[in-house]
């Protein structure tokens, strides 16, 4: 589900999707591949995000992902999503700390 992304000052965009094989949340890297760790995501400014997004959507089947979209993050290390929803996608369900996702670079 695509939500309109409004960038506030200092925020960046990352691309995210789910892996076709197992549904796991993945993040788009500079080289066009996808990674489980948000720490590997390339940070995009709004002006280039659109092109990146169309490229990622186009290559989704080949790269084995579904449901590509962009979302706002704070450009810290590792990047921290702005919304609770994307935080949970990045880190795993809050109710199962044992399933926490490795996010580091």
């Amino acid at each position: 589900m695509k939500r309109p992304v409004r960038l506030e000052l200092g925020q960046k965009l990352v691309l995210t999707a789910n892996r076709l094989l197992d549904g796991r949340t993945v993040w788009w890297r500079e080289d066009g591949t996808w990674d489980l760790r948000i720490g590997q995501a390339v940070l995009l400014d709004a002006d280039v995000a659109e092109t990146a997004l169309s490229r990622a959507v186009e290559e989704a089947q080949r790269e084995g992902v579904v449901g590509v979209y962009d979302t706002a993050v704070l450009p810290v290390v590792p990047p921290e999503p702005v919304t609770v929803r994307e935080k949970i996608r990045a880190h795993g369900p809050t109710v199962h700390p044992e399933f926490a996702v490795e996010t580091a670079q």
């Binding site: 094989l21 549904g23 796991r24 089947q61 080949r62 579904v66 996608r89």
Partner: peptide, 25 residues
């Protein structure tokens, strides 16, 4: 998996078999 079916084509088929895509899996 081999790309013959797109996600849009496959989604109603998987849903008929109880399979959803959620946030993590």
């Amino acid at each position: 998996l081999d790309g013959t079916l797109s996600e849009d084509e496959f989604k109603p088929l998987r849903l008929m078999n109880g399979l959803y895509l959620q946030l993590h899996a």
